[in-house]
């Protein structure tokens, strides 16, 4: 090997990618050539620095648990042992037991396979929402600051609900993503309970696996995953998808969703809203919600 050849092979030599024969040739050359040995030492130092700089950081302690929490689960905890017990009881008790087992089986609803959208929203709610604002890029209780901040970064307007006379309080927001598209993320607090609001472009096939309900004229899609209640709706004219997530009760989240929709309705004067959103006035907070009507998207 000559000095001119060294620069061509030095990276591969340090990366362990040279053939055995070429490695031995390089070895021999470095042993006798002071200049190339200095080049080698300098290159090795750069490689070492890159490894140190890249590997010194570790993942946050809660990342693993957040990932595991966000996995779509198809079964309920404890379902398998319970079923086993029931089956054993059925065998012992004969016909009566079998009837009982059949009855139990009909009572158990088969869990819906969770959609990627639900899993993503729930995981991001847990990641940003349950960290008490640690993951926020802008901490503010002013929707008038938060809205322009989002627009400046995302390039589209984000309608935030007015919570001046509401129990919810804006905590702040950050830029996130939903279904690989940029998304606004706003965090609200309602009596110590985190509520996440996501705003992004419309998501294709978002309805799959969600339960559609019409609540006070609004078309909402519901799911729940690992104790996180999820609701999304569309602002059809702007082709935006809004989604809210909370670990609290569903009723409060429905109120919040309707508040977001009402904000949009009052902003535009209700004139050009789709009929399904403008159909009837919103229920007052705490009032009894109209019984949800289920339609086909289960």
């Amino acid at each position: 090997m000559t000095c001119d050849e060294v620069p061509r092979v030095i990276d591969a030599y340090l990366d362990g990618e040279l053939s055995l024969a070429a490695t031995l040739q390089a070895h021999e050359h470095f042993a006798v050539c002071e200049t190339c040995r200095r080049v080698l030492e300098s290159e090795a130092a750069l490689h070492g620095l890159l490894v140190q700089a890249s590997r010194a950081e570790t993942a946050p302690a809660d990342l693993r648990s957040n990932v595991l929490c966000s996995l779509p689960t198809g079964g309920r905890p404890g379902f398998q042992p319970a079923r086993r017990v029931i089956v054993r009881f059925g065998i012992v008790s004969g016909f009566v037991g079998l009837v009982g087992l059949g009855w139990l089986a009909t009572q158990r609803t088969v869990p819906q396979p969770m959609t990627p959208l639900a899993a993503e929203l729930a995981s991001k709610h847990l990641l940003y929402g349950e960290g008490h604002g640690g993951a926020l890029e802008l901490v503010t209780s002013e929707p008038t600051k938060m809205g322009p901040w989002f627009q400046g970064r995302l390039g589209f307007p984000v309608r935030l609900p007015s919570v001046a006379r509401r129990p919810e309080r804006l905590v702040g927001g950050r830029i996130s993503s939903v279904a690989d598209a940029p998304a606004a993320y706003a965090l609200y607090d309602r009596s110590g309970q985190s509520i996440s609001l996501f705003v992004t472009r419309r998501v294709p096939f978002a309805r799959r696996g969600w339960t559609e309900r019409h609540v006070d004229g609004a078309e909402l899609y519901f799911a729940s995953l690992r104790g996180v209640v999820l609701i999304w709706w569309e602002e059809k004219r702007a082709e935006r998808l809004y989604a809210a997530a909370s670990g609290g009760n569903e009723e409060a989240l429905v109120e919040f969703a309707l508040l977001c929709i009402k904000g949009e309705q009052s902003r535009s004067g209700g004139a050009a809203l789709p009929a399904r959103l403008a159909a009837r006035p919103l229920a007052a907070p705490g009032s009894r919600r109209r019984r949800p009507r289920r339609s086909g998207a289960s």
């Binding site: 966000s70 779509p72 899993a119 991001k124 990641l127």
Partner: peptide, 13 residues
């Protein structure tokens, strides 16, 4: 964190 979490979720799916 966001990217890692999305990657894991996609890998699981």
């Amino acid at each position: 964190q966001d990217l890692t979490q999305d990657t894991c979720l996609r890998a699981f799916e």
